[in-house]
Design a protein around this nucleic acid. Structure first.
Lengths: 117, 117
DNA sequence: CTGCATCCTAGCAGATACTG
DNA sequence: CAGTATCTGCTAGGATGCAG
C-alpha cells in the first residue's frame, strides 16, 4: 500500500480527517443530493457555525472533493457541489451513515447495558 | 428517518463521531482483521497514546461495536474484537479508506493546484 | 448573501508517573 | 501487560463585528 492511513506520517491522514470529521462528513453527505448555496448548507447541517462551515468547505475544496463556484453578482451567490471524487466519497459515507441510523436501537441498547454495570 | 445525524440533538451523532473520529476509525479498521490485544492495537494504530486508545475502546465498547474480553491471569491479558455490528461498520469504513488511499494522487494534485493560487 | 478577522474558552489530547 | 491519574498545552470551535 502506497498511502496507508495507519502510518502516522502519511498524507492521507489529514484528508481522512477532513472527510470523517465532525462537520466534514455531514457537509459531504448534504451535498450528495446536489448543488447547494452557503446558507442552504448551513441550514442542512444543523448546528454548524459559519466559521466551521467555511473552514470545512475550504479544506474539502483543497482536497479536490468539493467544487466552489462563485458568481460575481450583487448580492453574491456561491454554489457548492461535489467533484467526481467527492461523489464517490459521499456515497461510501452515506452507506456508513445509513447503516448506523438503521441500527441505532442496537446501539442504544448496548449503551444502556453498559451503563447498568 | 428516525435517527437522523443531520439533526443536532440526535443520539446518532456522538456515535458517528466515535466511529469516524481520528482514532475510532483507525481502531475499528485495525480490528477488522481479527482479535487483538491492547498493545498489539497500540502498535498498529501508529501514533495513538495509551490514554486515547483506552478512551476510544471504552466508547466503542459502550456503543456495542467492540467486544472486550479480559482474562484474570497474571500477567493480565485483554482481547478486543468486533461485534457483528462493529464488523458491518468496519467494512464500510474500509471501503471509504481504500477509496481514499487509491486516489491520493488525485487529492495531492488538487492540493497542489489549490495552493498554487 | 457570503464570507473573513478577532477574541475567548471548554475540552481534546499528549507526556509522565503510578498501580494491580 | 493493561491500564488509571494528573498535569498542562493546544486548538477546535462558538460569538461577535465588519466588508464586499
Amino acid at each position: 500500500m502506497d498511502y496507508n492511513v495507519f502510518a502516522k506520517a502519511c498524507p492521507s491522514r489529514p484528508t481522512l480527517e477532513h472527510i470523517t470529521g465532525r462537520w466534514g462528513s455531514l457537509t459531504l453527505t448534504a451535498l450528495a443530493d446536489g448543488q447547494l448555496r452557503f446558507n442552504e448548507l448551513r441550514r442542512r447541517v444543523d448546528g454548524v457555525s459559519e466559521k466551521m462551515l467555511s473552514q470545512t468547505l475550504q479544506a474539502l475544496e483543497r482536497d479536490g472533493l468539493v467544487l466552489r463556484e462563485a458568481q460575481n453578482t450583487n448580492p453574491p451567490r456561491v454554489d457548492y457541489s461535489l467533484t467526481p471524487l467527492g461523489r464517490d466519497t459521499a456515497e461510501r459515507l452515506l452507506s456508513l451513515i445509513h447503516l448506523l441510523e438503521g441500527r441505532m436501537p442496537e446501539v442504544l441498547a448496548a449503551q444502556a447495558a453498559y451503563d447498568a454495570r
